[in-house]
Design a binder for these strands. Structure first.
Length: 254
DNA sequence: ATGTCACCTGGTAGGTGA
């Protein structure tokens, strides 16, 4: 079984790339972030025509998430229950017995901004909700664009980025709190190339210079960890014409 | 070099967010 996450930075722009990627990478489930589509504009017929089930939850201009799967997703949840949030950031469903949570974590903009305060509040709510989901589902995966670098290994220039957004101690403490629930960063279960990133800024020729961050992350529960046999970042789509600034991440379960 | 991209409003550009 394979599960994947990809921030597509506008599904309107990237739909064909996503369908092509799914054809080449027949995963069991793929969660998308930054679809940037209201629900009435979601291209569900195109997914259905290619043989995929899909659940979606979006808004105008910003955010927006989806869960694409081969078998139907059950018990679908949109956003964090109980959190008053106008932003469409979470979609969850059970796919082939695996509780699959796709999330687009807030960016946070800058540590001294209102958006950072929102990010902290959102992370608190996510933690508490995921805790409950884990009590109900042994086999659980939380994946998406975390907008947090877990560690300095995940930053191309840790000195330059120290204390900056995605790299603050507060964000990393929230990441550790998620791990403390019994989740594991699937990517770090395996030896990986140094300078492995999942996002490269469109600016500054960052991809050509391999200046990036690893902020797209797959966390697995203990029961899934025991099944995990691989986790890789697929850089190929970042080389497409008109690429997303993020690459997909894939986890393989036995 | 902050060297880009996507989307909005109200346009044949400027602002916002990432």
């Amino acid at each position: 079984m394979k599960l994947a996450t990809w921030n597509v930075n506008s599904l309107a722009v990237r739909l064909q790339q996503v369908l092509d990627w799914l054809a080449a990478n027949p995963v069991d489930a793929l969660v998308l972030q930054e679809t940037k589509l209201t629900d009435d504009k979601f291209p569900h017929a195109e997914f259905a025509a290619a043989g995929w089930q899909v659940q979606w939850f979006g808004q105008k201009t910003y955010n927006g998430v989806a869960l694409v799967s081969r078998s139907a997703a059950l018990d679908v949840v949109r956003n964090i229950p109980g959190l008053d949030d106008e932003q469409a950031r979470v979609i969850a469903g059970t796919v082939d017995g695996v509780r699959t949570i796709g999330a687009y974590f807030p960016n946070g903009q800058a540590p001294d901004s209102d958006k950072f305060v929102y990010k902290m509040r959102w992370l608190d709510a996510l933690h508490d909700w995921v805790q409950g989901e884990m009590a109900r589902h042994q086999q659980l995966v939380l994946m998406g664009d975390f907008n947090i670098t877990p560690d300095d290994r995940d930053v191309y220039d840790p000195i330059g980025w120290a204390g900056q957004i995605h790299c603050t101690p507060q964000e990393r403490a929230h990441f550790q709190r998620l791990l403390a629930l019994g989740l594991t960063d699937a990517f770090r279960l395996f030896e990986q190339p140094v300078k492995s990133w999942s996002w490269w800024d469109y600016r500054n020729l960052a991809f050509r210079k391999n200046q990036g961050l690893r902020i797209d992350i797959i966390l697995v529960s203990e029961a899934l960890k025991a099944r995990t046999t691989a986790c890789v970042i697929d850089k190929l789509p970042r080389k497409n014409e008109r690429p997303s600034d993020h690459a997909p991440v894939i986890v393989t379960l036995g």
